[in-house]
């Protein structure tokens, strides 16, 4: 019983620690995509794919699409953290208009 109570109390704190970790990882990956990759554009430009020099392509489309993927990944990870932490909102379909 004691173990159960402690775990229940720690659950939100653990969810917040993992939220902070996820935010840090996401922002580091973001910095790699929008700051580090373009900084190496010069060298990447030596590689040409379908007419695109890779450095230009990454800054003009590649990094941007990867940022979108990163965002989608982050959203799903965060929603899972919220569910596991027991702090997720009720799903829209079981909220019930009449209850609200």
């Amino acid at each position: 019983m004691i173990g159960y109570g402690k775990q229940a109390r720690d659950l939100p704190a653990r969810r917040w620690r993992r939220t902070v970790g996820l935010a840090a990882v996401t922002i580091v990956l973001l910095a790699v995509l929008v700051l580090v990759v373009p900084a190496f554009a010069d060298r990447l430009n030596a590689v040409v794919i379908a007419g695109f020099p890779l450095g230009y392509f990454m800054a003009a489309q590649g990094s941007l699409l990867l940022v979108l993927l990163l965002t989608v990944w982050f959203i799903f990870r965060q929603e899972r953290l919220d569910r596991e932490g027991g702090v997720a909102e009720p799903e829209p379909f079981d909220a019930g208009e009449d209850i609200r």
């Binding site: 973001l30 373009p38 979108l68 965002t71």
Partner: peptide
């Protein structure tokens, strides 16, 4: 030219910060 892409990279990155932070 290439340097104009700073606008795309910055603006796109901003939305990640909004979602995360």
């Amino acid at each position: 030219g290439f340097d104009g892409l700073a606008y795309l990279l910055g603006w796109v990155g901003g939305f990640v910060l909004i979602a995360v932070l």
